[in-house]
Write a protein that binds this DNA or RNA. Sequence first.
RNA 1: GGUCCCAUCGUCUAGUGGCCCAGGACGCUGGCCUCUCACGCCGGAAGCACGGGUUCGAAACCCGUUGGGACCA
Length: 487
Amino acid sequence: MTDSTAQGPHPSPVRVRFAPSPTGALHLGGARTALFNYLFAQHHGGKFILRVEDTDRERSTEESVSGIFDGMNWLGLEWDEGPFYQSHRMERYLEAADRLLAEGKAYRCDCSPDDLETRRKAALAAGLPPRYDGRCRDRNLPADTPHVIRFKNTRTGDVVVRDLIRGDVVFDAAVLDDLVLIRSDRTPTYNFAVVIDDADMAISHVIRGDDHINNTPRQILLFAALGSPLPQFAHIPMIHGTDRTKLSKRHGATSVTAYREMGYLPDAMVNYIVRLGWSHKDQEIFSRRELIDLFDLDHVGSSPSIFNPEKLLWLNAHYMKNTPGIDLLPPVIPFLPALVDPLFSGAPDSGPYADYLVRAIDEWKGRTRTLVELGESLPPFLDRHFPYHPDLSKKGLNQESLPILKELLTRIGSLTTWDHDTLSQLLRSLTEEKGLKLGQVASPLRGALTGQTVSPGIHEVLLLLGQQESLARIRRAIRSLEEGGNP
RNA sequence: GGUCCCAUCGUCUAGUGGCCCAGGACGCUGGCCUCUCACGCCGGAAGCACGGGUUCGAAACCCGUUGGGACCA
């Protein structure tokens, strides 16, 4: 295996993590972060760890947790370890904070929010940065008074984030605050819990959204204070909506499972989001195997990208067309409408019904872009009672076509073989004898067979429906024309 | 407001100093194929934000400007 990261061979086994806060569904940005972590782990033969950052009990919900798992499963992003929950590790954070306290690397602080606010404003007014002034640093407050635990930050020098995607990002330590590690209610803050977890889980590479890059210098200092080895960092750019702001609910469907409901295939989704920020030369289509073989951090771009639903649609159409009908059957079943007079009885997932459906899917899948469209196209082939499209008389299914339909009824009825060549020859000789173009026969026939103005090729439609059903449908159209003028 | 990041067609991107008066893809568009609709194929319009450097040479390196974004407050 070749190593492709900027900093040479990994000194330790590759262990990456996806660490969502369960405060909503798995959205496109989160899914891409998870995907990049998954692919990186797979590529390097490492481990992909799932960690639920649910320390915010107010905003975290069970629904979000299961929604995130659901989304990851749908996309096929299997994790090797976890899920771990931060809410189950509260004792661990307290213990780590106590150790820092004992080592003089942290201190208790009882400044009230009001005090803090007053001093912050005063600092601002005096033209100073509005950070914590360190009042409690050396007070050695007793443990039995209400307090927060703050990190005793270094105040001089630079903190350099050696980012695999952005290069070195330099922060002035003086602008970093004495950040709170443990709140007065004994819960850990985000930055503290993350560092403890990443250290405990021996994470080798932190691959996450670049909305976290400003947190990184603080985290680096915490790793150092803890005496834990520093992981490598890779901050990937955000995905934006069309208005170029961070993707959120305002931009419409942003959860990945919403796309499942809209009839998208998980492989198309994966292929789309992997190309948002990552590329391999000019290649657009990647199999899962290729992704694992080719993925690297070197070719992750550094500018944010905008979600483009049109391209996702195109990719989905591509995957629909290139997926065997048999594999499209299970996912399309939920999109089939209820039928009035079905050709088959029973469930559509097995037996002759399933066999027929697979053939119908194979005829249609190249003309539909989503499972929703596919599901909508199938009913005329599954149901004897379909309506006639209002444009059909214009398209040729009208009084003038009556003789042709009757001729078709006779000739098709007398066939003893039923294959593409026979049907093709039948239609060819009929058009030649009558001096017609194929369209003048195919169009009314299509209307009679399907009630639709568009369909797969006329021979394929006949083959699919079978001789008896085709004849029944032609008879129905003739009757309807004779009785009602137009169908 | 502070800190940090970003900047190639409308969008996703290739590009790691000469192969680029910039390549691919989506979308748009002209045509071909054709029984309908798609698919497919061939063609077209469309971009290096701006200004300075560095260099024999800059989309690429540096500085600045402008614009955008994220985080914190």
